[in-house]
Design a binder for these strands. Structure first.
Lengths: 192, 192, 192, 192
DNA sequence: AATGAATGAGCCTTCATTCAT
DNA sequence: AATGAATGAAGGCTCATTCAT
């Protein structure tokens, strides 16, 4: 067994364990010890690779953000019209990888943390802005710029709102239903 | 000289301090000591009146819920048509009393806590259901029951979503804009 | 047993335990836990009353400084000539209360800490300056101001130097011998 | 490609880094990691060559002692009378190599460590005795053995005391002033 | 009615040290 | 010759909670 090159492996494992732990606890009140144990290493190692708890949490957040970005990119690749692109963006937000209990919990927790952590807030704003400009970009082709902005805001709020309800109501809402509601909304909105 | 009848005064003060402290911190990582100090009493007294931290937090949540209920009732009193009633319900969610930084922070934090606390989850579900059935009740008069349910879900999600964004983006969004978007949405939806 | 008014008692006990612990260990590598245990309380209480380790250490230092001040004042009360006053000042530095192993160890440790702690350095400078000006005040009456300054510096250095050697050589040096050497020095110096 | 004959180079580098680090920190609260990094090697290597932290610290101390010995020898080579020899010994204690911030800090720290480490105490006693007998050797030629012993003790205390003050008062004292005071002292003392 | 006193438990973090390569 | 990987142990600090008054 090679003793070198463990760093990326450990980092990945620790980030995964962080998200899993947040999902299991349903909050950011996770301990380095528990995360490390879940990743199969000592808590000292987690500090060694990440510097501290905040940094590990942020790294996990960045990971989530990146995954979402990949998800969007993948869906967009198969979209060939503004309408298809809009559906793709919304689909990506509810992709499997984004819709597991752990991931939803983590996102929700990060929302809260963003209120007290500047760095977390910055990261989240990246997500919000990216989503918004993605939506506006295609909506503008289908309607005026004013309506596009408003519709994009509403769609963003709906996505986040459904996330909350999903986490809250024991995942009782069907994914397709949420997607359907949102899609029907913007179709309605652009012709209004 | 110990005074009599202090209990309700202390309870109110402590609940107010709890919400204020959550607002100041932006999270539920709030200490009994800080809350008690803010309320001008010892932390031992907070325990005396509420039993423990969880109970105090729950009581604060219940207070928020009640305030929202009152807000809705007040707005509904002046509404005389289904359309007016729907606008009133939405207005209530964004009433001054519900829209301060502290209150928004507290709500958001309670969302998260609901993932790990059965009691908190139960309370939040009361809110969700009440809002939903309130909306459905009036929407049904304007459209079919199927559409009413879907529209109510979407409106609920939008309200929560805008809450998040409000807390997140430094309260940059205008209240009237959010209300307008939501109202336009259900008007559109019921005629679709 | 009265439950109130414990604070001064605990503070005193903790400061005493701090000095004792430093003496026992011979360094500032002392733990809050050990100190607290020696004082018969929990480490949490030590934090409660002092805020943190640094503050407790500084408080102990201040205590030492104050004790030395009292020692000097007591000796000076019985001195009625410059010569007697000089002897009194030197005597005070080697008074019983200043000359126990624990106290000497603590002083020595504080010297070192003063290199990295601004607050410790400030406190020590108070001591250094006070001693110097005390000495100069009386020396000036016996000799010129230039000689007085130099002699005072030398006497100060000798006191500190003997402290070190005392701590170092297992307290092999006799107190009277040290006092004698120093006293003979300044008597020699002022007539030179 | 592993090189051969690196051991003495690494040892020297590590000892130098140790003293530098102590100087930078102003205390012995120095970590193997930092020392190793300063020396440009891994902390594992420091252990490999020295066995442990205590041993590295002791080695650094021995290095300081040796340097002082060389300094004394060098100065003595040009001294041809007891008086010149005494001045030479004192000069050596304040030679450049002994008087840098790092070195002074290290010496002071070692004084403290000697209270808890038998080996450190032993080393320091070597220094103390060597200095004392060096001084006595020449003083005896100029005065009686009783006076010689006392004067040597006082000179030793003064040297250590000035060291402390030098470290303490931000190196405000001039080297020549200290040397002058000490030299005037023993000249005075032997004729008394 | 209210509080000062006190603590146990737990968490983050640091660090010397070991080991396989 | 040298290091990355990894950890156990320990310390400072916080906090909810209890209790006697």
């Amino acid at each position: 067994m090679p003793k070198t090159g463990m760093e990326p492996i450990r980092r990945k494992a620790l980030i995964g364990a962080t998200i899993a732990e947040i999902g299991a606890l349903g909050s950011l009140d996770v301990t380095m010890g528990k995360i490390a144990k879940r990743a199969g290493v000592s808590s000292a190692l987690a500090h060694h690779y990440f510097g501290g708890k905040d940094d590990l949490l942020l790294a996990a957040m960045r990971h989530l953000l990146m995954q979402l970005g990949l998800s969007v990119a993948a869906e967009l690749k198969q979209a060939h019209s503004p309408e298809q692109r809009l559906a793709a963006i919304i689909n990506a937000s509810f992709a499997d990888s984004q819709f597991s209990k752990a991931t939803v919990s983590a996102w929700l927790s990060f929302y809260v943390q963003a209120q007290s952590s500047v760095r977390a807030a910055r990261l989240l704003r990246v997500y919000t802005k990216r989503l918004h400009s993605n939506l506006v970009y295609d909506l503008k082709k289908l309607t005026g710029p004013g309506r596009a902005d408003e519709t994009a805001k509403a769609v963003g709020a709906m996505i986040d709102g459904f996330y909350i309800r999903h986490a809250l109501q024991g995942h009782a809402l069907q994914r397709d239903e949420m997607i359907g509601i949102i899609n029907r909304y913007w179709r309605l909105s652009i012709v209004a």
